[in-house]
Design a protein around this nucleic acid. Structure first.
Lengths: 109, 109
DNA sequence: TTAGTTCATTGCAATATTACGATAAAGATT
DNA sequence: AATCTTTATCGTAATATTGCAATGAACTAA
């Protein structure tokens, strides 16, 4: 069916899944890593940096922007992208809490 | 096309994306949360706990198992699942390193 | 043996995602 | 104005994902 039944899950579960989904493609991971590496706005390097076509990159950027993880600033003809540090921190908190659960008790397996 | 061009990306980028992808569905998030909450093996509660059909849960479990994040132990008629703490820790390290990049430098946006 | 329980697998339909050519939009340059 | 540069959007093809009914496999209980 391809249709996720979001209504069956808690808001937190859906939030985690949404964040994770956007990281679930290496192109978006690469985009973010580049933004972190440069650590300032990037205006167009991305298509050269990553090997995908311009419309494809644009689409991936859109998804990252839609979740609020990056911001885009129009600057003349080009657009400057950078990580939205405030929203990134929010996301990090949610994801850390999920990933950092402890496994103290013994396991039977 | 729906076909990710994995060969264009680094091994780390693909690894991060694979982990993230498996967390990119609320059912799998819910399964993992339940396993953490119970903090021991679970033999069949999952279908009741989460509201999806048994084959659907089985499929999600398969994906989690395939990545090594959970283990399944056959115990008579039933199968006991639990988080594989060693592999979970490995995954955590990879994901933390990706998520925990700092944003010290000023941003222009 | 027969029937019941539990989980995996198969097969399929519906939807989502990915990629990109073509094109549009908008500012910059000549 | 005419052209160039840069990014977004549209349309479409290919592939992936999700969900479940039906069925199978394997052990248990009567």
């Amino acid at each position: 069916m391809g249709l996720t039944k979001t209504e069956m899950f808690s808001e937190l579960q859906n939030e985690i899944a949404l964040y994770a989904k956007v990281f679930g493609h290496p192109a978006r991971v690469a985009i973010l890593q580049h933004l972190f590496k440069i650590n300032t706005c990037v205006c167009g390097d991305l298509v050269d940096e990553i090997g995908l076509a311009q419309p494809t990159i644009s689409q991936h950027l859109k998804e990252l922007k839609h979740l609020g993880l990056i911001k885009g600033n129009v600057e003349g003809t080009s657009v400057c992208y950078c990580v939205d540090s405030k929203n990134w921190a929010k996301m990090k908190e949610v994801m850390f809490q999920f990933l950092d659960q402890d496994l103290s008790k013994e396991q039977c397996c």
